[in-house]
Design a binder for these strands. Structure first.
Length: 795
DNA sequence: TGCGAAGCCAAACGAGTCAT
DNA sequence: ATGACTCGTTTGGCTTCGCA
């Protein structure tokens, strides 16, 4: 079974605690070394050459020892240089070298390995398999202002080979320009998925959470003028039932409410026709079935591969396939033209299928042509720009599992999710585009809040930079930052402060800015003390700042960037599933969309994730809300939205917990703690928005209901220590499931339960009625904070 | 009478099963 | 082997109830 690859980084300011002959690995990084404390390490430099270095342990510290001096000498590493190490596993590291100008060290790209002899061959020979399957940091497609890396033969060779690269290869890069060169309609970027990552996240052992995470990430990084949705291939997609569910939202918008044939066109131009069958009683949701298998096989789609379906015209979807599962160089390189692909695929297919496929395709193409002739208008770019975002948002779907399987899967999912984030970090760093590095100084993270772009770096690209650039943090969220020129020096100015605050950057933190050529920087962040990546930076949410940087004259307009995917809250209610946007832990961009209602047009303020709606409840009635354990907080946010609340609490007072958003790590910890506290008799629930706000309904696992509760409505007593709350268990007879409703709200509010908190419910006195459930709360953010009411005028 | 909370139906969708 | 259909869970939203 394939295994998830983690690519954690650490950074070293040379010389820090190490000497020229030995380099200490940050203590915090040791856990990423797969338990290895000795052995030979392979350091792969920017030149593509590798150095063998001995890993030694002294006391509790690990060092790069013998051979390190060679690396230092060959790279002309000097005092004040920065080295960034990416662990690709099996003690193989990719190393980037930055000089004192904060830019990548030119010499490092041209240096050769002075090591030689049998030891090198032995070690490299052992590791060759892995290395070969790995991708150098510089192996991306050439796109634009890229550093010259003549000596990086590996890279050049690849590029040369891939000159005719099909879309798939280009999609595997992060350059928009690369895409544009192949398809003018395509301006999008997409997450790099190297063929080396033996990710098998989805389906084959992957949890829905991880798949959801990944789908969303892909959706975020993909941009298209057409509507699209993202699907990660699960086992049932490529075997078993051989079907693929089309997101409801997408089906509603673009597919008829009847069985239809859809043409799937891969990026090489080859087409397949599949049946799309409405699967719900009201025929609104579609499933791809007949013919889908043919597409899967012809395109050698594997479990874990990521498919992006672009609605390029009526009844036609262009499919981008990102290979994540099993690798085949030919597949990925795109060297094979469409004909080759078809022929090869055909050879592997039953004749029956091949015949059917081509036949149906021909038929469908006629249909498509007919549609065109009838005046089917090309999609309105503006319209579908939004639609695309909608579609992206609907790529996320709820997970559903049952009982222990669900819990086990969720644990696995959380663990994998953490690993996945590191994978993301690795990917985000894996670029051949110019980078620079900056250690945060006082004025960078306070005072004037400016950051100087290294002159050497600025000299190369400033002509291409507009007044505003975008910074994409490890979380995938984008910040607009102004660029101010002062002579030959460029500064991040307006907006930088917000970026700093949102990432809680402090003095001595180290940031790597990777320019991708589109006025856009990917930023990696390292903790100044541990020199390891700032884990929290991956889970940052953009704050709804109550005050904008006063120097900024304008706020960023919504939908301004083509890269971002906004989870449009206008999907809430009538059009979509608000919870799916709000709920999602990995939402990358706070919704700032104007929201209109078919029913009402109340001015509402969209709160951050730590805000929840607490409609006045019985226990509050008669009380002055301002006395409710907290002073009234009047939010002075500056963004107003027309929002429709479809949940009936438009006029409800809204409260903010004042808590910061929880990080994924914290959520995982809470989950694991709760899991450990859980006994066979109990059940555990991680609070979702609908549990602790809005609907205040908590479903109880069906298996547990069947075992412990009668199939009827009944009261349940929730108990913490000696304090009790009465809640109502509602049983859905026709659906044989149920959950807590009446009274549950009081429990939630009285205990300040928040989203992502985990509750363990253990039955006391089994058999007695009403059932008493002892509840243990595991808070994702410690120290419950009393709710703070938000001024009604502002939401 | 108006509004919020409670109650509950049914849509949506992932995933598995079963018929062909 | 294939593909249509069904099931289980989550969640949106409508209706009813009760209080001020």
């Amino acid at each position: 079974m394939l295994k998830l690859r983690r690519r954690p980084h650490f950074v070293n300011v040379f010389p820090s605690t190490s000497s020229v002959n030995r380099l200490k690995i940050p203590v915090g990084f040791n856990r990423n070394l797969e338990g290895r404390t000795t052995g030979s390490v392979l350091l792969r430099g920017p030149s593509g050459y590798s150095w063998v270095v001995e890993l030694v342990r002294k006391d509790d510290d690990l060092f790069f020892d013998e051979g390190w001096a060679d690396f230092v000498r060959d790279h002309s590493v000097e005092c004040g240089d920065f080295l960034v190490f990416r662990h690709d596993g099996d003690l193989v590291f990719d190393v980037k070298v930055f000089d004192q100008s904060s830019c990548e060290k030119e010499a490092a790209f041209h240096c050769k390995c002075s090591q030689g002899g049998s030891e090198y061959d032995r070690i490299v020979g052992q590791k060759r398999g892995r290395e070969d399957e790995g991708v150098s940091l510089d192996q991306d497609c050439e796109g634009l202002v890229k550093r010259t890396r003549e000596s990086s033969s590996e890279f050049d060779r690849d590029v040369g080979d891939k000159e005719h690269c099909g879309y798939e290869l280009l999609l595997a890069t992060k350059t928009c320009r690369g895409l544009a060169s192949c398809d003018e309609n395509h301006e999008g970027t997409i997450l790099k998925k190297t063929g080396t990552q033996d990710l098998n996240l989805h389906g084959g052992g992957c949890t829905p959470m991880v798949a959801e995470f990944e789908e969303k990430k892909v959706a975020q990084s993909f941009n298209s003028s057409f509507p699209f949705f993202v699907r990660i291939m699960k086992r049932f997609n490529v075997s078993g039932s051989y079907t693929l569910n089309i997101p409801y939202q997408f089906a509603m918008e673009h597919l008829p409410k009847c069985k239809t044939e859809i043409v799937l066109r891969n990026l090489k131009g080859a087409c397949w026709t599949v049946n799309s069958v409405p699967t719900t009683r009201v025929h609104t949701s579609h499933t791809l079935c007949g013919g889908w298998l043919g597409f899967v096989r012809s395109n050698e789609i594997k479990v874990g591969d990521i498919c992006i379906f672009e609605f390029v015209r009526k009844f036609e979807l262009r499919v981008h396939i990102l290979r994540v599962g099993g690798e085949d160089p030919d597949r990925q390189s795109g060297k094979a033209g469409s004909n080759v692909l078809i022929n090869r695929s055909d050879a592997t297919l039953p004749k029956k299928f091949v015949k059917k496929s081509s036949k149906v395709h021909s038929k469908s193409m006629k249909k498509v042509q007919m549609c065109d002739n009838k005046g089917f208008k090309m999609l309105d770019k503006k319209k579908y720009g939004n639609a695309a975002k909608k579609s992206a948002s609907v790529a996320l779907c709820s997970l559903s599992r049952s009982g222990n399987e669900k819990q086990e899967a969720a644990i696995g999912g959380l663990r994998m999710m953490l690993a996945l984030d590191e994978e993301k970090a690795a990917q985000s760093f894996a670029s051949g585009f110019p980078s620079f590095v900056r250690i945060m100084r006082k004025f960078n993270v306070g005072g004037s809040y400016t950051l100087e772009v290294p002159e050497k770096f600025a000299k190369n690209i400033k002509q291409k930079l507009p007044a505003t650039v975008t910074l994409k943090g490890p979380s995938g969220i984008i910040w607009d930052v102004g660029l101010k020129a002062d002579g030959n020096t460029l500064f991040f100015d307006c907006g930088w402060k917000i970026f700093v605050e949102d990432h809680s950057l402090v003095e001595n933190d180290l940031l790597i800015f990777k320019y991708n050529g589109m006025s856009h920087f990917d930023v990696l962040m390292f903790d100044g003390r541990s020199l390891c990546e700032k884990a929290a930076s991956y889970f940052v949410r953009k704050c709804e700042h109550t005050e904008y940087d006063s120097r900024c004259q304008t706020k960023r307009k919504m939908n301004e960037t083509p890269v971002e995917i906004v989870h449009n809250s206008s999907h809430c209610g009538l059009e979509s599933s608000p919870e799916k946007s709000i709920n999602n832990d990995i939402e990358t961009r706070p919704s700032r969309q104007p929201i209109t209602s078919a029913a009402t047009n109340k001015k509402m303020r969209i709160m951050g994730s730590s805000t929840r709606s607490v409609p006045a409840r019985k226990s509050l009635r008669g009380k002055d809300l301002t006395t409710f354990a907290a002073e009234v907080k009047v939010e002075t946010g500056d963004l107003e939205f027309d929002q429709t609340s479809m949940d009936g609490d438009v006029f409800s007072p809204r409260y903010t917990t004042g808590k910061r958003p929880a990080t994924q790590v914290e959520k995982a910890n809470v989950f694991l703690m709760a899991q450990e506290a859980l006994t066979r008799e109990g059940f555990m629930v991680v609070m979702k928005p609908t549990h602790v706000a809005r609907r205040f309904y908590m479903a109880i696992p069906t298996a547990w209901v069947a075992k412990h509760l009668s199939k009827q409505n009944e009261d349940v007593i929730l108990r913490i220590n000696k304090q009790t709350w009465k809640a109502r268990f509602y049983y859905h007879r026709n659906r044989d499931c149920g959950g807590l409703s009446g009274g549950w709200r009081n429990f939630v509010n009285d205990n300040n339960l928040d989203e992502d908190d985990a509750c363990v419910f253990e039955p006391a006195d089994v058999g007695n009625k009403p059932m008493i459930l002892d509840v243990s709360i595991f808070r994702v953010l410690q120290a419950p904070v009393p709710l703070t009411q938000v001024h009604p005028a502002l939401y």
